[in-house]
Simulated assay, not measured.
Amino acid sequence: MTQPYNGMPAANLTGVAWRKSLYSNSQGNCVELAELPDGGVAVRNSRFPDGPALIYTRAEIAALVLGVKDGEFDNLVA
């Protein structure tokens, strides 16, 4: 696997296990996340699994998850 970078084709991230939420619906409207060998986290659109991947640090993902748990983004789905 080449060094991960933002916008790289998700298909180039070989050897990673993509996971999506159990809340994902049957139309595939969800994002998928994969832990990278360097400890980062890749995110891709489940409708376009070979499309671009965004690469985040664990700290960035932790901040997002904590914000979601605190309800900071509830207005985006209401």
Rank of each mutant, 00 (worst) to 15 (best):
T2N: 12
T2M: 14
P4N: 06
P4I: 08
N6A: 10
G7V: 05
M8I: 14
M8Q: 12
P9K: 04
P9E: 08
P9M: 03
A10M: 07
A10V: 11
A10C: 11
A11E: 14
L13Y: 01
L13D: 02
G15A: 10
V16P: 02
V16N: 04
A17H: 10
A17Q: 13
A17N: 11
W18Y: 09
W18D: 01
W18F: 05
W18A: 01
W18V: 06
W18E: 01
R19M: 13
R19V: 13
K20F: 08
L22T: 14
L22R: 11
S26F: 07
S26N: 08
S26M: 04
Q27A: 11
Q27K: 07
G28V: 03
N29K: 06
N29E: 10
C30K: 02
C30F: 01
V31C: 05
V31N: 01
L33K: 03
E35I: 12
L36E: 07
P37H: 12
P37I: 03
D38V: 06
G39T: 03
G40N: 15
V41H: 02
A42K: 04
V43G: 00
R44L: 03
R44P: 02
R44S: 04
N45P: 01
R47E: 05
F48T: 11
F48I: 10
F48Y: 12
P49V: 04
P49K: 02
D50R: 13
D50K: 14
D50N: 15
G51M: 08
P52A: 12
A53M: 03
L54N: 12
I55D: 09
Y56D: 09
T57D: 02
E60C: 05
I61N: 00
L64M: 15
L64G: 06
V65K: 10
V65A: 13
L66E: 15
G67C: 06
G67S: 04
V68K: 05
V68L: 15
V68T: 08
K69F: 00
D70R: 15
E72D: 14
F73L: 13
F73C: 03
F73T: 10
F73K: 07
D74S: 13
L76M: 11
V77S: 05
V77K: 11
V77C: 03
A78P: 00
A78Q: 14
